[in-house]
Design a protein around this nucleic acid. Structure first.
Lengths: 222, 222, 222, 222
DNA sequence: TATGAATGAGGATTCATTCAT
DNA sequence: CATGAATGAATCCTCATTCAT
């Protein structure tokens, strides 16, 4: 996999992306659908070329290597994985005491489910390759931790201070948070990718209900 | 991948496994460690042979195809994935009102964490390949549903009737259950495979705490 | 071997053959000489590549499989196996009472001996593989019967009606005809491929003499 | 292929054949049927072993190499290919003016058709391998020429002297003789191996009729 | 004598990548 | 820029043969 720092590539990628030609677009589109369907390792560049209606050489003219094509597919998605409500906006809103954690969670879930829904295939690629490709995993991990984990931890801390969350180490809450949300995304969009969700809102409320209050029946609720 | 019913292969596998020769053991061991490290598709049979200190032909003499070697690695693990406390034992205990759901959860977690801990690498292989290899996924899914999902659903129903669990469809509880537990296993044993857990018991209690009661701080708990 | 109807392949083959590149020509030439010398099954693609001065991959880029290469070698020959004097020309000439059977036989022999002489190696391949390769035999048989056997039968019928040929079933005459002519071609161009024929015309006259009048000495000839 | 003189092997073979054990018999039987069905090159020793119900090693214990097994299958047949009515018997009969050439031909055909019928599979092997396997061909050719061709030539000479056969070089007659008879055997027992002959005697008479008198209709016969 | 596990050279085929046009 | 022919290393797999038991 690429030896450069990921962010450098990312930036380069961003700049280049303006110039994306028609053929490049076709290549990326074909690659996305093939990588998602059968995985990076099981997709040949000739299949991508055929799928894109392009000569095989053209792929290498634009992306140099197959690895690089994978990155070109994944990186824009990764960048957008940072919740749209980015840092400052985020802090601002919360400082105004507008949201309780439950509302935050609701907003986050809606936002991210929407985002992944719009990018199902790339999400599948990222999930599969992060598990399959150790090198890629190691490259992306710091980015995730820095940009996503840390922000969520910050949020959790804020709500803990407000007394909305239980008194166990933030780190533990955060891990359980990612386990549950991440697990949900993977099972819904990768493992059960074929099935559809009947009532999106009810689904989200169920998740929130269980994350917030667990599955134990409470006497006062009876 | 194999065209026979999984269970048939599984049984055949079990019966044949008695005759495992020394070289077969070495091959399987090398395969497990390589498949776990870089995935089935990225591991060549010649690497496995080298890792096992065996001629490449020997692999094919014993396993016929690379696919078959993968199955030979995975199937015994799959079989043992059914919680050791098998059906009857299970029902028996529960019919005696001995356990509350929390205790059941604790027992299950301890048991399965132990099991996976003893089979980390194979677990990694199974997780990776189930995501990566559609054919394998489709072959294993019915087995999982029949043997694991259904049993857990049965248990959830029992505890719901006893009034221990919230009144939402069992199906929903079950999905959240697997999302959380599965997500936990994957993040702990695959994604964060390198790091170790300091206090196993505390970890388990945290999981139980959050699954049962969520992350909301309750006034009466203050 | 190919699953499509032979004629389809044949036609496709013919159309594609225009684009034959330099390397393709070299590959086919090397394949012909090697297949003829030691048979399809005993010739490796690496030998063909070496013989053609080409990388092994190049063979597969152009022909996909070794089987396909064999077909690409054989089919153009098969197509041309239909006597050049094709159907209509054939019937026309004969309807004009120009030829007696003996003249027809002479023309046919000269024409086909010339053709096979120009394609000795491919003829050897076809003969060997038709005997060795059941699948190929079954694929080619209908073609031979439809295009060659039937035409000859038609001719035999015509000459029988003219009273030039003995009154035994046409089918029998035809079988003896192919046995003798075919046997001659095989023994001359395959079994005794090394030796040469001194007096081509005398050879042909001998064949005609024996096919027409047998080997018995007749009193009136003394 | 074996480097020893064929006759030596042949003799050794003959001597050994007395000691043929049960397993050897099974191996040879399985080999015959498999070689005939799909050819020597396409039959693996493991298939033969399986077909014979024997361990693969056993084949090599008895025959040393696969090539040698082929010879062990072929040689006894070759030896018996010399018309049963062997030399002296032969000459004797003929010196008594008992037979005309037609009768000789009839006797020969009946005898050889019967022999090949009893050894169809080995005949198929021999024909296929003589064409396919140059080394084997070169090894067997001298034997054929010495034992079969020469005897027939002698016979032809005798009948020519008696004025029964046409005045063209014996060599030519002999070649046409083998072309026709050989072509007949191959087409009947190899190419059309599946179909059966309705009236054996009529078939033989047709062959004789055509070999002796050709296919031309004669006026005096009308 | 018979076995069958083990071998490793060799076979067909795939594929990322290069480069002349 | 785009092409696609060419490459050759690497892949999975087959098979005749050997040898310890």
């Amino acid at each position: 996999m690429s030896k450069d720092n990921l962010l450098d590539v990312l930036i380069a990628q961003t700049n280049l992306s303006k110039k994306q030609t028609d053929k490049q677009q076709k290549i990326v589109t074909a690659a996305i659908s093939l990588f998602a369907e059968r995985g990076y390792a099981n997709t040949s560049t000739s299949e991508i070329a055929k799928g894109a209606g392009v000569a095989e050489g053209t792929i290498f003219r634009h992306y140099g290597t197959k690895d690089n094509l994978l990155l070109s597919v994944i990186l824009p998605f990764i960048k957008d994985s940072i919740p749209a409500m980015a840092e400052d906006v985020f802090n601002e809103i919360m400082s105004q005491n507008i949201l309780c954690f439950e509302d935050f969670l609701r907003a986050l879930l809606k936002n991210r489910i929407h985002f992944i829904n719009e990018n199902r295939e790339i999400f599948q690629i990222v999930v599969k390759e992060i598990l399959y490709n150790e090198e890629l995993r190691k490259e992306l991990q710091p980015y995730f931790i820095e940009n996503i984990v840390q922000r969520i931890t910050k949020v959790i801390n804020i709500y803990k201070e407000r007394g909305e969350l239980i008194d166990i180490p933030s780190n533990t809450i955060q891990r359980m948070f990612f386990t549950f949300i991440g697990g949900y995304f993977v099972s819904r969009f990768v493992l059960l990718a074929d099935s559809s969700v009947a009532d999106e809102d009810a689904e989200i409320e169920n998740i929130i209900r269980i994350m917030m209050d667990g599955i134990r029946k409470r006497s006062q609720e009876m």
